[in-house]
Design a protein around this nucleic acid. Structure first.
Lengths: 156, 156
DNA sequence: CCCATTTAGTTTAACGATTAACTATCTAAG
DNA sequence: CTTAGATAGTTAATCGTTAAACTAAATGGG
């Protein structure tokens, strides 16, 4: 078990399409995520940016547990993330009037502005992606991806 | 500005298509990644699985630095990951005969088998994804995603 | 040759996320 | 009411990653 066995032979056929798809998606997310993380640092981490995007998309107020569930992180992690966003004045936090245990978090205008600046920065870097995928393909792609996300979200 | 301002007004238009695309991809990667991580634990972490997949796709031998660059992690993280894969007998590690500083890592048959088992497990969970996206759409999707990955990989 | 610079890999400290334990509050059954 | 169990949020310990410092070996210009 010590020799340099290259292991290129014995092909058991291609991987299932669903796996290829998610694998490719994982690689893209890794590549673009690292890029974005570096671009946005040190003002904004990805964890924080994702929360801003969630509120932008859906609006309203959310408890920590709901946010944590949506983002697929633990309550403890969300406590940390929200504390940092709150310290910057980007979200408001108030006790839930209907539940003495809970807190309600909402996006504030400075948070919305920070999100907008972040997207501007990102697009300056990623704008050239239009060369790789034309607008029509992008629309097709987006529609299919949404179906996948909805399926994953609905079966977890 | 301390009140619970919902911040749903003042729409500055939709986000750029490229951002919507990468955002959706990020969410899918998060959802499927968490799922896979739980399914594969404790035999295999995502960091390790990604290395197995890399070798399966490309074959041959690689140095730690090349692997680290390809996976977008630091050399230190790759030292750790390879040490664990090596301890399980899934990869071979030998000194680079042409460079006294370097090591060469290769996939061993037990590692290939572990990868195969992992994919089998994953498909048992993700197989239903075929309901959300038919085969033809999946092929289209995959081709477009590859273009995006190549662009991202080529401009980093 | 020699020496300055670069590169491969490991080690250490700091950071962020997870797990588990804990407090406080809500809910519901008796 | 009372009380047992579930739920919201925080805290403490642990794990894996990153950044930075370090060792060892390669490279290239005097």
């Amino acid at each position: 078990m010590t020799g340099p066995t290259p292991t290129t032979g014995a092909d058991p056929g291609p991987d299932p399409p669903a796996f290829q798809l998610l694998n490719e998606i994982g690689i893209i997310a890794q590549l673009s995520g690292t890029r974005a993380e570096r671009l946005l640092a040190p003002d904004l981490t990805m964890a924080q940016f994702v929360v801003l995007n969630h509120f932008h998309r859906l609006g309203g107020e959310r408890s920590l547990v709901r946010l944590a569930t949506a983002m697929q992180v633990t309550k403890a992690a969300m406590t940390n993330t929200i504390a940092r966003l709150h310290a910057k004045g980007w979200v408001s936090v108030r006790p839930d009037p209907n539940d003495g245990r809970g807190k309600l978090v909402a996006l504030l205008p400075p948070g919305e502005a920070a999100r907008h600046r972040a997207i501007f920065l990102l697009m300056a870097d990623l704008g050239g992606l239009g060369e790789a995928v034309d607008a029509e393909s992008a629309a097709t792609l987006l529609a299919l991806l949404r179906r996948i996300r909805v399926w994953l979200d609905g079966t977890r």
